[in-house]
Amino acid sequence: MSGAHEHLDHAHHFESVEHEFEAGKLGMWLFLVTEVMLFGVFFAGYGLFHYLYPEMFKEAHHHLDKRMGALNTVVLLISSLTMALSIAYIQRDNVKRAKQMLLLTLLCAAIFMVVKYFEYSHKIHLGILPGDLFKAADFQAPNIALFFSFYFVMTGTHGLHVLIGMAAILWIYWRMGRGDFNSRKFGAVEFVGLYWHIVDLIWIFLFPLVYLVV
């Protein structure tokens, strides 16, 4: 290492920044595994009740807005791209571009949440709410509230993850502005990126399963 290279901070129980990065990355992947297990519970339950009540699921299904779901899918896919680009830019020490890409990611996430807001408020207006709150009358199949409970619990949990992701992106945006990251030290950006990709990936499973599969 040349003396010109700036001092790189790393926790003292690691040997180097790279060592710390490696540990952080493994930790992040393990965390993503827990996310997969969490949503696995939802998918297993959803699959079971889909099998038990095919007719009810079919009927309930018509009340979901596929176009809004598809729009959100596209928005999230774009956000994954911009997130990846941000990491690529910071690896090339292009802080300005990396920050712009983070802002674009945030914008996409915000669009996602706004679309979600319209979807939810429309349903709430119709009395389609989870569980006991379900008030809509024009349904034939029994226990139809069960489907919408799944809908709200699954998309709600996912939405919560999007919000947490937005907070995390804001946090690294702020740190990037402070000059914390460069081509040798960009762990936090990469880890938030990994998290953002899993949030995206879960939606990629969630959208066809809840909105499209009959």
Binding site: V41, G45, P130, G131, L133, N143, S149, V153
Partner: peptide
């Protein structure tokens, strides 16, 4: 994570009646 989310679902079952585990609600 499986028990964590299952217990949250049980909480929602008691507060909102989401019905995943309640035979009366299917």
């Amino acid at each position: 994570p499986v028990i964590g989310i299952t217990l949250i679902l049980l909480t929602l079952e008691r507060t909102l009646g989401i019905g995943f585990f309640d035979p009366k609600l299917g």
